[in-house]
Design a protein around this nucleic acid. Structure first.
Lengths: 316, 316
DNA sequence: GTGTCTTTTGAACATATGCTCACGGGCTGA
DNA sequence: TCAGCCCGTGAGCATATGTTCAAAAGACAC
């Protein structure tokens, strides 16, 4: 009884101290004088107030829920990096918001004094991010592509992400002058053993940061829309359980890379499982929710940049 | 447009910083690194977040509303001191809670090294407060009574507040060995001119702290219940507009001391208007609401110790 | 363009805060 | 009653925070 009584009055004092500190804005010194205790005790009361959750903070701003979602994703999937931006009501699938953050991430990485290797995958957000990177002179860095950029018809992919980023930084760059898909597994194997290609792979394996997009595997799959795979190839992968892809590598709902189909003819550099280097995906939109969740679950990535609506859905 | 845009992104960052600081518990240094700004800027963002009220604090504790009420009372009536304690649900008119705080106030004052003069008025809370004061040896202090303690029938008032407090401190004390009420104004004037009484008044005038009760002037008025005034005297004062009394001095709803009735025959020391010394009233209960509000309005007191329910009603 | 005015920035300093440690007072269980 | 334990305390220090000031970066008028 005596204990509970003194506990109670201690909590009362803690609440008082918390009020005076956070709400009235007094210093702990003033509070100490008011409550007739030493400053050290006032400090203890304030932390007790926090520890006992007598006081709560409420952030009245769209950003607040984004931060909370990012923290949850980071926790749930053991991510090394996660950012959630507010969903743009005008364009819920627009990549502008996340591209901005990706660009920022790239700039931060590029700003390093020690040489770094950045690997880039596919995706609108990745392309848009590169466009937004402010030029900075860093010739000692290296930029490497994770995917071939030659279409089935032999033409070069319209957007040379690696080249653009290299332009802006003066960094050495390693595009992958390869068809995205070879005709057979055998052909693929021979191709990737070529010295020039093996060197690109060697650089990519040492990448400090991999920034990739995530594609969903459905009728609207980007890799089909862009002409990298035929409808039949897409359908076969879906039959094999494919739900998403990263740099072309299709995986199922558990995030397991599928052994079969086009995965056997891909020239792209395969993801590490679990991801070793900082491997950050940029993706958003209702269509990609399952693909994102699977990639996180399977540890194909250890970082994510997305928007609020998508983050909420992935966690649901 | 550009301005509003940059403002917006600045607020976003402020919200982010606030979230990271208050909710995630990071230091401003960490936040600065995360947001790629200097620590000083991070600090600015955090204060901006506060200034823009993006973040709000909520204290989930009964004390919280008490603190808020005390702050409002202090502001509204320009008080030098105000405390509000939680209303005891078991005894809504019990003075225990406020007596505790009064005792604390007395102890704080008594703890001073330099000599102080404490004047005491009437009221249950004042009596109870004195009872709770921990003995402390302070012979250099002085305790003085603001009211006579002899009843109309010549017997001494049952509770000698001043004497009790003096016992506990070893302080010199000045009781007022006078009837509360004299037979006529003339008689009163002669009495208070007596050397012994004039000296008590001189001490009281120099008091550093006056702790008084507030009585309501209604059929249940304490001064009548205790036998200090007759029913007729009480009724006359009410007719003259009396709504409350402090040390016997009756005042109206505007807090103006009434010129007439028993006020002309009172031996008690009259309140300063406006109060000069720290003059703190201890009172609570539904019956006293109007009396408290009037005393505050008329500046008869510049401090108040009450409970939550009463504070709320006084402000309403 | 160009100069001026305003705003924002980071360095440096002054304060405030959080933490560790050794001490002391009060409860507990022989 | 008394030793032992535990909690709370304050001193003192390491860190973190808040503020000031001069200089840079923009904004704006011409």
């Amino acid at each position: 009884m005596a204990a509970s009584d003194s506990d109670k009055s201690r909590l009362d004092d803690a609440a008082r101290a918390g009020w005076l500190y956070f709400i009235a804005g007094h210093t702990q010194d003033e509070i100490a004088r008011m409550l007739q205790v030493s400053r050290a005790s006032a400090q203890r009361l304030v932390s007790l107030c926090l520890a006992e959750r007598l006081i709560t903070f409420r952030l009245e701003h769209p950003i607040a829920s984004c931060m909370a979602l990012a923290a949850q994703l980071k926790e749930r999937f053991a991510l090394v990096h996660c950012e959630v931006v507010p969903t743009d009501p005008a364009a819920p699938t627009g990549a502008a918001g996340i591209a901005e953050r990706c660009a920022n991430l790239l700039e931060t990485t590029l700003r390093a004094e020690t040489p770094v290797i950045i690997a880039l995958g596919t995706g609108r957000a990745v392309r848009a991010a590169v466009e937004r990177v402010t030029p900075i002179d860093r010739p000692e860095h290296q930029i490497v592509s994770l995917v071939g950029n030659i279409l089935a018809d032999g033409s070069a992919s319209f957007f040379d992400t690696v080249g653009r980023l290299a332009d802006r930084t003066g960094a050495r760059h390693y595009p992958m002058p390869l068809p995205f898909l070879m005709g057979s597994e055998d052909e693929r194997d021979r191709m990737v053993r070529l010295d020039a290609i093996a060197k690109v792979k060697a650089v990519a394996d040492k990448a400090d940061l991999k920034l990739v997009g995530i594609g969903q595997m459905d009728q609207k799959a980007q890799m089909h829309v862009d002409g990298f795979v035929t409808r039949d190839e897409l359908t076969e992968m879906m039959r094999l359980g494919a739900i998403g892809e990263i740099t072309g590598w299709a995986y199922d709902a558990k995030g397991r890379v599928i052994d079969g189909g086009i995965n056997r003819r891909l020239t792209s550099i395969a993801p590490d499982v679990p991801a070793r280097a900082m491997t950050i995906a940029a993706a958003l939109g209702p269509a990609k929710i399952a693909a994102i969740r699977a990639a996180l679950t399977g540890r194909l990535i250890n970082g994510l940049i997305t928007d609020e609506a998508t983050a909420r859905a992935v966690l649901a």
